[in-house]
């Protein structure tokens, strides 16, 4: 009975959404903000990747808010799970092949992560993607050898410094040009690694912060005690 009601609800929801959304003109977006930004962004910001230009330039304040949400989620997860007891049982370490593979993969993943962060203003990529890859690099190592300790203190320091750097660059822009998080240092020559002003710096700060936060969350979950099965 309850399942039948749920099925009816889902059917009604599908019908409603389909009716509403089929009225919209997908494929020819009517939004004017996007076209405006596409027209002025190459000259103003100088980033070849316009998504990064919007993420860190035109909507930088919004990105700061998103970072705050991520920080709140990470902190809440840490608070909920609490500290691990010293006598808690750990997972057994992985096999020889798994451990060697993880050790081989670790430097490659770190290099890829920093490459993606550094080229965020030129090619697809940027702070968020690179940060996730960095977190994955540290987490693969932790999964292969659970006894290895991931220092929560170090993670907190990286996270705090990166967040502070993001805000400080924003305040610097506020003092220098009058707008919070406005791109500084001039656009430079498009397509070069050192171009687009402060965007690469902001990208690096976001990458470190996201990577440290996600790695911290996962280390917390991995530290939680397993039931006796």
């Amino acid at each position: 009975m309850r399942n039948l009601a749920s099925l009816l609800f889902a059917g009604g929801l599908a019908f409603l959404l389909l009716t509403l959304l089929s009225q919209l003109a997908f494929g020819t977006p009517p939004m004017r903000v996007g076209s405006e930004i596409l027209a002025v962004a190459p000259g103003e910001v100088g980033a070849a990747n316009l998504v990064t230009a919007i993420l860190l330039g035109y909507r930088g304040f919004d990105t700061l808010g998103e970072l705050a949400i991520l920080f709140a989620a990470a902190t809440a997860a840490g608070v909920v799970l609490g500290r691990r007891r010293d006598d808690a049982r750990r997972d057994p370490p992985g096999g020889e092949v798994l451990r060697t593979g993880a050790d081989l993969l670790f430097p490659l993943l770190v290099v890829v992560g920093f490459y993606v962060i550094a080229h965020g203003h030129l090619t697809p990529g940027g702070g968020f993607q690179g940060g996730v890859i960095l977190a994955a690099a540290f987490f693969v190592a932790l999964l292969a050898q659970p006894a290895r300790h991931l220092s929560h203190g170090l993670i907190l320091w990286i996270e705090g410094l990166a967040g502070a750097a993001f805000i400080l660059i924003g305040i610097w822009a506020l003092v220098a040009s009058g707008d919070f998080l406005a791109p500084l240092l001039g656009p430079g020559r498009m397509g070069e690694l050192l171009s687009a002003g402060t965007l690469p710096l902001l990208s690096l700060a976001i990458g470190l912060k996201v990577g440290a936060e996600l790695a911290g969350i996962m280390a917390h979950i991995a530290d939680a005690e397993a039931p006796d099965t």
Binding site: D91, V132, A135, A136, F139, L143, L214, I217, M218, I221, A222, A224, E225, A226, P227, T229
Partner: peptide
Amino acid sequence: LSGVILALALRRLG
């Protein structure tokens, strides 16, 4: 990452 987090949660939930 999401799959890893969920799988790890399964492990921890037994």
